[in-house]
Design a protein around this nucleic acid. Structure first.
Length: 251
DNA sequence: CACGGCGATTATAGGGGCCA
DNA sequence: TGGCCCCTATAATCGCCGTG
């Protein structure tokens, strides 16, 4: 007796305060008509294919319409989320949308567990860790770090301890550049932020690069630069930030 | 009646032409 | 020569409809 997707989702929402994080939501996918297609799309996303046509290419499903259709089901199930640059006026009309796995646990599962299931079932954990997980774990974690930095900045904004009260805070990109965090208000004050997850102090180069990217924005009355670092900051950058009020450092 | 196919519609990038 | 605008191709989304 197959339940419908809608029933499943409604039950999930109603049963609990929020979703069931401990219960693998992807088991629902097995109930759909084309589970293999859904899994190949999820795998493509887990490996960083974020734009629609990147997913189309990776999965080999030649029809973008088709992929879009499956993605809309996955979004309904809250497995996939769609993000647009924070400055977009009509987010649901934007063509700059990227698709991400909504839940960090799923990101890990589809990236590292599912593709290597046969090794893992053999008990070959060492091989999977050394060859498959360890080499890319830093960039994988870097993405999570961006999320955390974003939350941090939103919290500070809520507590009114930023240089101004921001109306919108989020990621931003166009076809050439990408800025981890952009925050702004109605008076055209901006904070541009970059998150660095590496075992090296962040220095002046990172600041200059961020300043260069910020030039993409017009009509900016006042701008601030925020740098988030895993491993602290260079002496030069610290000195400069003590002189300039528009540099915010988060260790 | 949910699912999936498919046509219609719309936003955007990139190229070419025109004008200062 | 550089900047701007229009046009076209295409990427992306919307939404209807047939089917099992």
């Amino acid at each position: 007796d197959h339940k419908t997707i809608e029933q499943n989702v409604k039950e999930e929402i109603l049963n609990k305060n929020g979703f069931l994080f401990s219960e693998p939501r992807f088991l629902l996918i097995e109930e759909l008509r084309e589970p293999a297609i859904y899994f190949s799309i999820l795998k493509a996303i887990a490996f960083g294919r974020a734009r629609l046509n990147e997913i189309v290419q990776e999965t080999g499903i030649s029809d973008p319409h088709k992929v879009n259709k499956y993605l809309s089901v996955l979004r309904e199930l809250r497995i996939v989320k769609r993000e647009v640059p924070i400055t977009e006026d009509k987010p649901h009309k934007s063509r700059k949308g990227i698709y991400l796995l909504a839940d960090p646990f799923f990101r890990f599962w589809f990236r590292y567990v599912l593709p290597h299931m046969s090794y893992l079932e053999e008990g070959d954990l060492n091989y999977v860790w050394k060859e498959k997980i360890k080499p890319s774990l830093n960039s994988f974690t870097g993405f999570i770090f961006e999320d955390i930095c974003l939350q941090r900045l939103k919290n500070l904004n809520r507590k009114n301890v930023l240089p101004f009260k921001a109306r919108s805070i989020g990621r931003w990109w166009n076809n050439k550049e990408e800025i981890d965090i952009v925050a702004y208000d109605n008076q055209q004050s901006f904070i541009f932020g970059e998150c660095k997850w590496k075992n090296k102090k962040v220095g002046l180069n990172e600041l200059y690069d961020l300043e260069r990217k910020a030039d993409t924005f017009f009509n900016v009355k006042q701008k601030y630069f925020a740098l988030f670092s895993k491993s602290g900051f260079s002496k030069e950058l610290k000195n400069l930030s003590s002189q300039r009020k528009d540099i915010l450092l988060f260790d």
